[in-house]
């Protein structure tokens, strides 16, 4: 299986998820709930199935190109969305996650990667997979936290209570931030192994450190005595901008032309 088979899975997964979501929006009966659960999970399984086969056919873990990263992102963000949905029963959260996920798989559909099988020697390391996976999980959590933040800002503008929303954002940020910390530290341990030094301020390293710092700011702002909910929410939104630059924008920055991390 290669990217040539991909369109089939794009439509299968999107179809299953959209059907699952539509059923959830109908007046609930317990029978329909089970059907939507099955549809949602099958959507994830379909993507997972494609990814595993892609992995086998590439003969290397599919963690290298931007499209492959997007694929994993799509899987994890949908899984997290479904888990959060079962935990907190938030349909908007689920819809957002599935929308993001569908967006990513469609970007891949419209803009596929080169069919490149090679992996440069420095990437053939046992640190590679954990490094990328924890980053992807971290990014997914933080993306979700930002949406929670935006919902908070909306509620605030309507003069509604945001107590529950921001508590939820706090929890998600803590988890996402911890994963980001894993990513940063795994990256450092790996760099030591591969290049002889754990931190070289490569542009990608600089930007992921910045991302980490902005979320650190949010965490400490939230525990400080004189916190202000509106400012907290804005910090959360700003943090997401930095995260996006770190993830996509880096390829276009003048300071990043020599980065070892710029994806091919």
């Amino acid at each position: 299986m290669t990217w040539l088979n991909y369109p089939f899975f794009v439509f299968l997964t999107s179809g299953l998820w959209i059907a699952g979501l539509l059923i959830l929006l109908l007046p609930k009966t317990s029978k329909l709930r089970i059907i939507s659960d099955i549809l949602l999970i099958c959507g994830v399984l379909s993507l997972l199935y494609f990814t595993v086969y892609l992995w086998i056919s590439l003969e290397r873990p599919p963690f290298r190109t931007l499209a492959e990263t997007r694929l994993w992102y799509a899987i994890f963000i949908s899984v997290i969305g479904i888990i959060l949905f079962y935990r907190w029963k938030l349909v908007w959260m689920l819809s957002y996650c599935l929308f993001m996920s569908i967006l990513f798989i469609f970007i891949n559909y419209l803009n596929p990667d080169t069919f490149d099988k090679t992996l440069m020697p420095a990437l053939q390391s046992p640190w590679f997979i954990p490094h990328v996976i924890v980053y992807i999980i971290g990014y997914a959590f933080l993306a979700v936290s930002s949406l929670t933040g935006i919902k908070g800002l909306y509620l605030l503008s309507k003069g509604k209570s945001v107590e529950k929303t921001i508590k939820l954002a706090d929890n998600i940020v803590y988890i996402g931030f911890a994963f980001l910390t894993f990513g940063l530290l795994f990256g450092a341990l790996w760099a030591k192994e591969a290049w002889g030094h754990y931190w070289t301020w490569d542009p990608k390293e600089t930007w992921s450190f910045l991302t980490w710092m902005v979320y650190l700011l949010f965490i400490h702002f939230r525990i400080s005595k004189k916190k202000n909910i509106r400012s907290s929410l804005w910090i959360l939104a700003l943090a997401f901008v930095v995260l996006l630059i770190c993830w996509f924008g880096i390829n276009y920055l003048p300071s990043a032309q020599t980065s070892v991390h710029v994806y091919s």
């Binding site: 301020w201 450190f209 710092m213 400490h220």
Partner: peptide
């Protein structure tokens, strides 16, 4: 050892590294 001081110190360092993120080193 207050959070206000902590936030101020994290902020300036972030600001400085942000400049570094835009200016080629």
């Amino acid at each position: 050892s207050s959070t206000q001081a902590a936030i101020s110190s994290i902020s300036v360092l972030t600001f400085l590294i942000l400049l570094m993120g835009f200016i080629p080193q």
